[in-house]
Write a protein that binds this DNA or RNA. Structure first.
Lengths: 142, 142, 142, 142
DNA sequence: TTTT
DNA sequence: TTTT
């Protein structure tokens, strides 16, 4: 009972998010994310890249489709989920995805330039988690 | 711009949560949490304990006051916040606290026994984060 | 360049670790880990379990094979890695695994009882990370 | 027994690292790190910054003093530690610090330009954690 | 005291 | 398929 299933990634989008609208009006977005680590081996710099399938639902999917593009650097928090599906030849296959619960754009200023600050582009659902505590940090004498 | 401030703890409560109701009806709970690590030094087992000040707001505070008691093992996710206050001698002091955004009780089954499952003891706010994705894991062919 | 690929799990082992010794003397261990989350849906308690393939290398594999058994509750920290392999019919397949970098047994005291403290059962490699700072927390006046 | 005490931060250095060499030749480095979060309140963009005291020991301290400077964006992983000390008036005080166990520079290319890749500037101790698994990802048929 |  |  009661476990923890948490993934934390910082990496670059390999493609623009692909958005779908399911029956019932639910929005889903997905994109590949690359996390690379670099290390020295015998004095040579070696880079190793891992690719992750990121999936976002509903409000997060919509925010992602607006603000994330191929190449951008993002912090993503989510959980692992392995699903099965049938490929075109009706063979059962498995994929493991990271279902995002939260994300934050990192990186250069230019990455934020097309992110106008109006009351319309609502705070990403992820950020609203913070609102609760953010507006309540009064100075109580614990 | 845009940073990450995340704390992940697994430890035991040092005391029962202390609950307060602020003006305006906001609930705050707090308790000390011990995380200990054990390591071998010269063949001897050494245990080192660190104490953390945990603070919870609103709905989370209420769930905590119901289900958490001294001694229980919990997973807590939150963020660091340092605040200043004046002590009795009007000296300015600082405390660093972990503002919880999420928690899960770990440990023995008996720890859950007094946690009846009715529609009344609402899902902790933290857990509702999961609901979004949990009820939408249909089998879309990405 | 420079990414983060981190997984944090708390769950129960589905089986005893399976240990292999590769050519060259490298030890690898692996086991399935279940993380379950419980939430209320329409007043009913619903439990959803996710299974993860955990892989451990070298020293960590050896410590795991000694101290971890089916049913135990563990905290695992690691990274995601997707590899391809050929199944018996020579079909290329993919699996995503969590390569553990660290683990800690959680749970009941009885779970630790068969963990004698001698200088022989070396500190898990994971725990040695902590040693560095643990033995140097003198009281320097920063 | 057996807890988890983990901090994950992404933020900018407020100052260059300050390095000290203790008696016995141990190196310690420290610097303030700012993590800011931005959220909408009544249609206005509000930024809230939290400052953290980062401390690094030994090898990590040396790598930090070489590659980190005021203003850089870093990912830091570590643990919380609260210590007491006496201020100039002999009053006992407490500080909570993040003892880094790992860090990665994020951000612009220009941030890496003064990071020549030679066999001399050794892999940060943190990164060596990855080496173990990185050079062993052979294709075993689990 | 950082960054956008 | 990203980035440096």
């Amino acid at each position: 009972m009661s476990g923890i299933n948490k993934v934390i990634l910082v990496g670059h989008l390999g493609k623009d998010p692909e958005v779908r609208h399911l029956d019932g009006g639910v929005t889903v977005a997905s994109f590949p994310l690359a996390t690379s680590e670099t290390y020295n081996k015998d004095g040579k710099r070696i880079e190793q890249t891992e690719w992750h399938n990121i999936v976002l639902w509903r409000g997060l999917a919509e925010v992602a489709s607006k603000y994330l593009q191929k190449g951008k650097l993002v912090y993503i928090e989510g959980k692992l989920r392995t699903r099965s599906f049938e490929d075109r030849e009706k063979v059962k296959k498995y994929v493991t995805e990271v279902v995002a619960e939260n994300f934050t754009i990192l990186g250069r200023k230019s990455d934020f330039e097309n992110t106008p600050v109006t009351s319309e582009n609502a705070t990403p659902k992820a950020e609203t988690d913070y609102l609760d505590s953010a507006d309540t940090n009064g100075d109580l004498p614990f």
